[in-house]
């Protein structure tokens, strides 16, 4: 017990920093959402919930929230499909190139978001690499719109956040005894069935943690939807930026940000509950 208490004291500085860096801006944001907009950069004095009522009363905003969640789910889903095999390979490979492979995986994290998004232009544009290839192969006759729309945003976000998922999953898969997979194969399950029946259930904590990280990052990302969406993918984060950045309407911006925060927290708790119930 004494030792535990000592540890508690050691945590104090970190807690103080967290409180200062995280809770105070959040409290500030919360306060802003309780005042009414009174022209650029100004709020009315009285406290009110009217911003929230106005937000919830407008079906357009519900659409925005739904659209944002859908974007998050799409990004999580595609990241899982792409990330699971890669994570599995990274966790199990014995090649001496492994550190290099890990570096390749985290490479997108080392590039600034603007550069990363610009890099997609020659690949995804109508005369870009992907479309040229598809047309040359005769798979499509008209170039696909892969950019400046939802598809572009999804591609950009998957690219940006896939490393988080892969690293989370690889760490969990690495901890699974390879003999357990051999046992499954020995008992007659093929590699795919073994993956589904053994690896997947045992990777569950990683799947949930990784998916939550990716979802949260995806629904709160601003730059990628703004740049890769071509101005036609309005989500909660770009809406917040618009309200605060161009209207200087902190009240509405803060309200939307808090709604997104609460929604994200709600989904996270739901996911964690779900994972505990099944484990």
């Amino acid at each position: 017990m004494a030792l535990k208490r000592a540890w508690g004291f050691l945590l104090l500085p970190a807690l103080a920093v967290l409180a200062a860096a995280f809770l105070m801006p959040l409290a500030n944001l919360g306060m802003k959402s309780l005042h009414l907009f009174a022209g650029p950069g100004r709020e009315q004095p009285g406290l009110t919930l009217e911003n929230y009522i106005a937000f919830l009363e407008d079906p357009f905003n519900w659409g925005l929230l739904g659209w944002t969640s859908l974007l998050g789910l799409l990004v999580v889903g595609i990241s899982l499909v792409l990330g699971l095999p890669v994570a599995y390979f990274l966790a199990r490979t014995k090649t001496r190139w492994r550190p290099v492979l890990f570096l390749l995986v985290i490479a997108p994290m080392l590039v600034s978001v603007v550069i990363r998004n610009l890099g997609w232009i020659p690949i995804l544009s109508e005369s870009g690499v992907v479309n040229s290839l598809l047309i040359a192969l005769g798979l499509v006759s008209q170039p696909l719109k892969l950019f400046n729309n939802l598809a572009g945003v999804v591609i950009g976000l998957v690219h940006a956040f896939l490393p988080f998922l892969i690293l989370t999953l690889a760490t969990v898969i690495q901890r699974i005894d390879p003999q357990i997979e051999e046992a499954s194969i020995n008992l007659g399950a093929g590699p795919f069935e073994t993956f589904c029946r053994v690896v997947l259930p045992l990777t569950r904590p990683g799947l949930i943690a990784g998916s939550l990280i990716v979802f949260t990052l995806a629904v709160s990302a601003y730059t990628t939807p703004a740049v890769m969406g071509g101005g036609r993918v309005l989500v909660m984060s770009t809406y917040v930026q618009q309200q605060i950045g161009t209207l200087l309407d902190y009240a509405t911006g803060a309200t939307v940000a808090i709604v997104l925060l609460v929604w994200g927290a709600f989904l996270s708790i739901l996911a964690l509950r779900f994972s505990k119930a099944e484990a």
Binding site: P122, S125, F147, N148, A226, V227, G230, G231, R232
Partner: peptide, 20 residues
Amino acid sequence: KAHSYYISSTDLQGKIESGD
């Protein structure tokens, strides 16, 4: 029937360069 709604001149420049 817009190709996109550009957010900055730098953004537009990239879109013109891509040929789209």
